[in-house]
Amino acid sequence: MSSQKFDSDKAPEPVGLYPHARQVGDLLFLSGVGPRERGTKKIPGVELDENGKIISYDIAEQCHSVFKNVRLILEASGASWDSLVDVTVFLTNMKDDFKTYNKIYAEYFKDNQPCRTTVEISSLPTPIAIELKCIAALKQNQNNG
């Protein structure tokens, strides 16, 4: 089965050798998406010390930023927010952040309600508190010509 890679010129650059998204058949798989901003080391809602360690962070600001980045990648891939069918959310502090994240998530997904899994992990590759892994269903023949 053939596949096609997509990269957004508006979403933050990947931190490794991988595309923002890859289409296989009628499915679009997004690589892990965080709240970073493109072309900068700035992470919305994060204050770092001189060694790059997190001093404080605002999970609400990171949630809004990560959802924006997912939307940018979907649009660059010819998809839309409503095409999301599965979202895996990685949080570094479930105890303190889940309630805020869950409230903001509900605002963004009130109309489209994809399947969702939320897990706590000890850290992410950059000093962020949230990352999303998404799958979207594309209309047949979309991006194929």
Rank of each mutant, 00 (worst) to 15 (best):
D26E: 13
L28F: 05
F29M: 10
K41F: 11
G32Q: 06
L27G: 01
P35F: 01
E47V: 15
D49C: 13
V15Y: 11
S31L: 00
L30Q: 01
G16P: 05
P35D: 07
N51V: 02
H20I: 00
F29Y: 15
D26A: 12
L28V: 04
Q23T: 07
V33M: 05
L48D: 03
N51R: 06
N51H: 13
G39A: 11
S31M: 06
V46S: 05
G32R: 11
G45Y: 04
G34K: 02
Q23L: 11
R22P: 02
P44I: 03
G16D: 14
I43D: 02
V33L: 02
K41I: 11
G34N: 14
P19K: 04
R38C: 10
G32H: 06
G32C: 08
V33E: 00
S31C: 11
D26H: 09
P19C: 01
S31P: 02
R36E: 09
G32K: 08
Q23H: 07
R22M: 14
R22C: 10
K41W: 13
V33T: 14
L30S: 03
N51S: 09
V24T: 06
Q23A: 07
P44T: 03
G34I: 03
V46T: 04
R22V: 10
V24L: 09
R22I: 13
E47N: 10
L48V: 02
H20F: 03
G34M: 05
K42P: 04
L28P: 00
H20G: 04
G39V: 11
I43H: 04
H20Q: 07
D49T: 09
E47K: 15
N51I: 00
Y18M: 04
Q23W: 05
E50T: 14
G25A: 05
G39P: 08
V15K: 12
F29W: 07
P14H: 09
E47W: 15
P19R: 02
T40M: 12
R36H: 13
L27N: 08
V24E: 14
G32M: 09
P14C: 10
G25P: 02
G34C: 10
T40I: 07
G39H: 06
K41T: 15
G39S: 07
P35T: 04
E47D: 08
P44Y: 01
R38N: 14
P35G: 06
V33S: 01
L17D: 15
G25W: 00
G25N: 08
L28I: 03
K41A: 11
P14R: 12
I43E: 00
P44W: 04
E50A: 14
R38D: 10
L28T: 01
D49Y: 08
P19F: 02
R22D: 13
G39C: 10
R22Y: 10
